[in-house]
Design a protein around this nucleic acid. Structure first.
Lengths: 115, 115
DNA sequence: AGCGTTGTCAACCAATTGGTTGAGGAGGGC
DNA sequence: GCCCTCCTCAACCAATTGGTTGACAACGCT
C-alpha cells in the first residue's frame, strides 16, 4: 500500500473520508473543527482521517494561526480516474475486437452455407 | 465499508488486485491459475483477492467444469469514476465562482480607485 | 473406481485500521 | 502572564486484512 495510487484508493474506501472530500469539493476549504462537526466521532478520529487523505495527496493543510485549513487537491482524483479509464477503455477495445472477430466468423460461415 | 463504492475503492487499493484488473481488461477472461501464475504468493492468497474483487462487483466468476473463469465487469469502474468526476467538477465550479467573485471585487476596487 | 487438476474452505498469524482517551503544543485575547 | 481555543501526538483496543499451511470438494481422464 505504499504507492500513491494505492494510498488514494485506500483513502477513498472510507465513507467518512469520501464525505469529507465531497464537502471540501462543494464548500471549499474548512478547518478541522468544521470538518469534524457533523460526525459522531472524536475530533482526533477526524484528524486521523485527514492525515490519511493528506498522505494520499488528496488534501493539503496550511497554517493560519492555530487553525489548520484543509484544502482539496484535485490532482490525485485525476490520477485515479486516469487509471480506471485507461483500463476500462482497454477492455472496451478488446470487446470490439472480439465482436469484429465473431462477426467475421459468422460471415464466413454464412458464405460457406450459401455456396 | 459495507456499501458498494467503499468495497470497490477498497478492492482497488491493493496493487496486486489492480494488476489483476488490468490484466483482465487487456487480455480478457482468465482462470484462477492463470491469474495467480505471475505472483509470488500462494494460489489461496490470489483466490482471496478475487473474492474481494467479486464482493466489490468488479469481477464475476462462472463455472466451466472445474475451472472458474474470471470476468471483468466494467460497471463498477464507471461507478467510481462517476463519483470522483462528480465532485471534481463541483470543485471546479466552485473555483470558477470564486474567480468571478475576485474579478468583480478587483474591478470594483479599480473603479473606486479611479474615481 | 482411482488419480490428477483446479480451486475453495478453515484455522491461524502478524500488521494495519479506525476508534477511544489523556496529555500537550501553538497562538490569540484578556 | 494566564487562559482558552484549536488541533496533534501517544498509547491502547477490537476488528479487519493479507498472507500462510493443510484439508478437501468438484470434475475430467483413463
Amino acid at each position: 500500500m505504499s504507492d500513491q495510487l494505492s494510498r488514494a484508493f485506500q483513502a477513498m474506501a472510507d465513507p467518512t473520508r469520501r464525505d469529507i472530500v465531497a464537502r471540501l469539493a462543494v464548500s471549499g476549504d474548512a478547518t478541522v473543527g468544521e470538518i469534524a462537526a457533523p460526525y459522531d466521532v472524536s475530533l482526533q478520529a477526524v484528524s486521523k482521517h485527514l492525515k490519511v487523505l493528506e498522505d494520499a495527496g488528496l488534501v493539503t493543510r496550511s497554517r493560519d494561526a492555530q487553525r489548520r485549513p484543509v484544502h482539496l487537491e484535485a490532482g490525485v482524483l485525476d490520477l485515479m480516474t486516469g487509471w480506471i479509464e485507461r483500463y476500462r477503455q482497454q477492455a472496451e477495445e478488446r470487446y470490439a475486437r472480439l465482436d469484429a472477430l465473431l462477426a467475421a466468423t459468422e460471415e464466413e460461415t454464412l458464405g460457406r452455407g450459401a455456396s
